[in-house]
């Protein structure tokens, strides 16, 4: 039972990170990275490491998203074709 849930969560981690790489809208990439971090903290909780899960959810999904959004706010939202 738990193995099926783990497989679904790990597939979700891979899919969200690949989608974050391929997206042209950087705000969408940031939101997808936050979703990947949340799924990763769920995986840590299933592997009996709740300390790491709390720290990952707070830093990965909260703080780094805020810092990325500040950086996008100061630069450009759309990815440039010719660098």
């Amino acid at each position: 039972m738990f193995e099926i849930i783990e497989m679904i969560i790990l597939l979700g981690v891979i899919c969200t990170s690949v989608a974050a790489m391929l997206s042209k809208d950087l705000l969408v990439s940031v939101v997808l990275l936050a979703a990947m971090s949340l799924l990763l903290s769920l995986e840590f909780y299933i592997l009996h490491a709740p300390d790491v899960a709390i720290a990952e959810a707070a830093i990965g999904a909260g703080l780094s998203t805020a810092i990325y959004i500040m950086a996008i706010n100061k630069t450009d939202r759309w990815e440039n074709e010719n660098g």
């Binding site: 300390d51 709390i54 720290a55 707070a58 703080l63 500040m70």
Partner: peptide, 28 residues
């Protein structure tokens, strides 16, 4: 999370990160 760090999961690092998330939300 900070005050119950020796009884339940969490501790100084995780609780401090949660409080810093609150500050980031207020700043934005």
């Amino acid at each position: 999370v900070i005050l119950h760090g020796h009884l339940s999961p969490g501790g100084g690092f995780a609780g401090g990160a949660i409080l810093a998330t609150l500050v980031a939300m207020l700043v934005i």
